[in-house]
Design a protein around this nucleic acid. Structure first.
Length: 119
DNA sequence: CTTCTGACA
DNA sequence: TGTCAGGA
C-alpha cells in the first residue's frame, strides 16, 4: 500500500510516516516512480512505534528495539546494553508517575480547601 | 488527485 | 510536525 492508505489506516500523518522512514523505524520499497510502497505488516509496525513513542522512548531507542521484537519479525535477543537502557526508561516512567500522583494529591487538597465553606 | 523532496513567517 | 513550493 502507499503512504496515503497507511496514513488513513494508522491515523498517523503522512509527514510523520516519512519521518519514521528517515529515522529507520519503518522500511518501504519504492515503485518505479519513486513512491513508497509499504507491506501489510507496516500497519502493526506503525502501531508499535506509536506505543513506544507514547512510552517516551526517542526514535533512536525505538529503532534499536523494533528489530528485537519477536512479534515484528525480530530475533528476540536484545543486546544487554539496550535492555539496560530500557530499564532506565522504566525508572523514568516510575518517577514520572510518582510526580503526577503528588500533583494529583495537591489539586485534590486544594479543591477541598477552596470549597471548605461550600459543602 | 496522490506522492516526492526540501525548507521554514 | 504542519505546510507550502514545484515537479512527476
Amino acid at each position: 500500500m502507499r503512504i496515503g492508505e497507511l496514513s488513513r489506516r494508522t491515523k498517523v500523518s503522512e509527514r510523520a510516516l516519512r519521518y519514521y522512514e528517515q529515522q529507520g523505524l519503518l522500511t518501504a520499497e519504492r515503485t518505479a516512480g519513486g513512491h513508497r510502497c509499504f507491506g501489510e505488516a507496516a500497519v502493526a509496525r506503525v502501531g508499535c512505534i506509536q506505543e513506544l513513542f507514547a512510552a517516551g522512548l526517542c526514535s533512536g531507542k525505538i529503532a534499536q528495539v523494533l528489530p528485537c521484537m519477536p512479534g515484528h519479525g525480530g530475533h528476540g535477543t536484545a543486546p544487554q546494553e539496550l535492555v539496560d537502557g530500557l530499564r532506565g526508561e522504566l525508572d523514568r516512567l516510575d518517577r514520572e508517575i510518582r510526580g503526577l500522583y503528588r500533583s494529583r494529591e495537591v489539586l485534590d487538597t486544594v479543591i477541598r480547601e477552596v470549597t471548605r465553606a461550600r459543602p
